[in-house]
């Protein structure tokens, strides 16, 4: 059990050694933080959506992200051997990873959480922790416990004026995240299923009474959340260039921190929280010390929660007896 902790030190984002002027350095950190925040946002959305609907911290969500990255690697490996061009591999890898992660999210909910509806509050949490341990070891046994090199799938292109400050993969990650976040917001606001989700989050019993199939809504929430995590998984793996079975844990904890920071259960809150967390970490790493990167993240969380106990955008629920 103890040996698991040592792998936690693996970095989520690796910086290049380009030292330019002070302004360039600032911009480089800023875009690095933006990328980092984007990935956190993609994972945090899954946490916050699941929490909003069934009030469960889905500890296995980080593992879904990891499985997405692994599926992406496998697809990339197979297609690469068949001689597909880089961009086609990226698109196909993301699509297959999304399908598989969604399938895993769906199955996990059916096995580990659905039989526990109405059980004491901590039981599904322990079930989730067990699921997370199970999935990590499953991937470790079926694949490998070593770091695997991930092919660089995102094509290189130059951004005029910003060469050396922002890389093409950073641009792609941020752009994809923005598109996904906008689409998700619109879907939740105007889509039929999105409306059903909001209704279920507000009051499950009442939603059932007005004819919403709560089981479908919960499954859909897991499917959507898992798909977003898979997108993040493939993109960041391609950006960093290596993955192993343990990447889900630290990314999951950070994303969960981001979700709580923004106010858990709130979708714009998760995006904002992830952005703040990513930027804080990037600047703290760049200007203070890379050793204490995680300390800054958690210290920020503690500080914000002391002053706003329900997160930045969370609503403090009225308490009744």
């Amino acid at each position: 059990m103890n040996s698991r902790g040592q792998a936690a030190a693996c970095p989520l984002i690796v910086y290049g050694n380009r030292i330019g002027t002070l302004m360039e350095y600032f911009l480089e950190l800023f875009f690095g933080g933006l990328t980092r925040g984007s990935i956190y946002a993609l994972i945090a959305l899954g946490y916050t959506m699941v929490y909003g609907i069934i009030e469960l911290i889905n500890f296995a969500h980080g593992e879904i992200y990891m499985i997405g990255a692994f599926t992406g690697l496998i697809v990339a490996g197979v297609l690469g051997a068949l001689g597909f061009p880089g961009f086609a591999i990226l698109v196909l890898a993301v699509i297959v990873a999304v399908i598989y992660s969604a399938a895993y999210g769906f199955t996990i909910e059916k096995i580990a959480y659905k039989p526990l509806r109405g059980a004491p509050r901590l039981s599904p949490l322990i079930s989730a922790i067990g699921m997370s341990i199970f999935l990590q070891n499953y991937v470790m046994l079926a694949q490998t416990s070593d770091f695997l090199p991930f092919p660089s799938l995102i094509p290189e292109f130059k951004i005029p004026g910003l060469t050396g400050i922002i890389t093409s993969s950073e641009v792609v990650i941020v752009a994809v995240t923005v598109v996904v976040c906008v689409a998700l917001t619109l879907f939740i606001k105007y889509g039929k299923l999105g409306k059903a989700m909001r209704a279920t989050a507000q009051n499950r019993k009442m939603a059932q009474l007005v004819g919403i199939s709560v089981n479908t809504v919960i499954s859909a929430t897991f499917v959507i959340g898992s798909s977003l995590a898979a997108v993040g998984g493939v993109l960041i793996a391609s950006h960093i260039g290596q993955i192993n079975y343990y990447i889900g844990f630290i990314a999951g904890i950070k994303a969960f921190t981001a979700a709580v920071l923004g106010g858990i259960g709130s979708i714009p809150g998760a995006m904002l929280g992830a952005l703040i967390l990513g930027l804080t970490e990037a600047f703290a790493t760049g200007y203070v010390s890379s050793d204490y990167e995680d300390v800054f993240a958690f210290a920020l969380l503690v500080l914000i929660l002391i002053f706003r106990p329900a997160g930045i955008m969370g609503k403090q629920p009225t308490q009744k007896v």
Partner: peptide, 26 residues
Amino acid sequence: VLRLRGDYLAIVTLGFGEIIRLVLEN
């Protein structure tokens, strides 16, 4: 953390635990 409840308390205590470990490490 007196004012926090439920899962907010959970994540803050988790953060506290990680801070202690990271300080020990660094």
